[in-house]
């Protein structure tokens, strides 16, 4: 972009080093850990899914920008969405479904709403919900970790599903869940690798630590109150991936820290309710999408402090 347009903007004119591009590449860096885990546990096929997803997402973004007569910028956001989408998919999803997912996430969930910054719903999760409802039959194939690059997967049940059984001791089960040596969506199984990626995000101040802490904490607490094993509930399924990489996304969550905490607690309550009382085994995707819908409402009621204003005391209000 050499022909930079003249930008007029109100003060303050301080410029930080942050830009969308830098942030997005940092997110991609953080995502490399769970992605590497996905390839390690579920084989090279995941890499193929990633390549198809990223390529189709970027092409679709280019096409959508052309249709909307807007300039196309390679800001990395399409790549982040594409990687996240693959990480929440079953590790042997057909490639054509991956392309459909890119179409829904980029063209429908993002560009139709006005592009990056205007989307109401998390694009990767919106696409995940769409393909889940549409192609339930083709996406019900879950495999056990293969630990080899090319081996075929053995069908098995995911930890949260009704038919899940294990022969390990409790401690070994927790260890397997923490390291990621269980069946599940490609990038959701390893809490450890997601935690490393998440800490990078927190270290670079891309996300607030409150979001994952309150989200995961709510699920743990509520599961414990309702008589479920809290440690199992937080380690199994996609809670960690959702907490660090989706519930803390800037665009689709409230602006203020207080708002973000409300969002995280609400999503945590929803996950637990869906898991325990719902007919679906996992609720992370729907919990975040539902709270995305509440984001404007939360923002309306939880105002950020206006710069330079002193907090009004109760006396003054009265």
């Amino acid at each position: 972009m050499d022909n930079k347009p003249l930008v007029l903007s109100p003060s303050p004119h301080l410029r930080g080093r942050n830009s969308i591009k830098r942030d997005m590449y940092l997110v991609i860096l953080a995502l490399l850990f769970p992605t590497a885990g996905a390839v390690y546990f579920f084989g090279l096929y995941v890499l193929l899914m990633l390549a198809v997803s990223i390529l189709s997402a970027v092409l679709i973004e280019y096409g959508a920008k052309m249709m909307r007569r807007r300039p196309f910028r390679m800001d990395g956001s399409a790549i982040v969405t594409a990687i996240l989408f693959v990480l929440v998919m079953p590790p042997r999803s057909p490639l054509w479904i991956v392309v459909v997912g890119s179409l829904i996430s980029i063209a429908v969930a993002k560009e139709m709403f006005g592009g990056l910054g205007h989307n109401i719903f998390n694009p990767a999760l919106a696409a995940r919900a769409f393909v889940t409802v549409s192609f339930a039959g083709a996406l019900s194939h879950w495999i056990a970790p293969v630990h080899s690059m090319l081996a075929d997967g053995v069908t098995t049940a995911t930890p949260l599903s009704e038919s899940f059984t294990y022969t390990l001791s409790k401690g070994e089960l927790y260890k397997a869940l923490f390291l990621g040596n269980v069946s599940g969506s490609a990038g959701e199984t390893s809490a450890l690798l997601i935690l490393i990626g998440g800490l990078i995000l927190i270290a670079f101040r891309l996300i607030k630590w409150q979001v994952p802490v309150f989200y995961i904490g709510t699920v743990a607490l509520l599961s414990w109150v309702l008589g479920k094993d809290p440690l199992f509930q937080i380690l199994a399924g996609g809670l960690f991936l959702g907490a660090f990489f989706m519930a803390a996304d800037y665009v689709t969550t409230p602006l203020t820290t207080r708002g973000k905490v409300i969002f995280a607690v609400g999503a945590g309550v929803l996950v637990t309710i869906i898991r325990i009382y719902g007919s679906m085994p996992e609720g992370v995707c729907y919990s975040i999408l539902l709270m995305n819908a509440f984001t404007p409402l939360i923002d309306r009621h939880v105002h950020p402090r206006v710069f330079g204003m002193v907090k009004r005391t109760k006396k003054e209000v009265a």
């Binding site: 549409s134 192609f135 339930a136 039959g137």
Partner: peptide, 8 residues
């Protein structure tokens, strides 16, 4: 039921 799955 879910098309393609339970609807079978």
């Amino acid at each position: 039921e879910t098309p393609g799955l339970g609807a079978k």
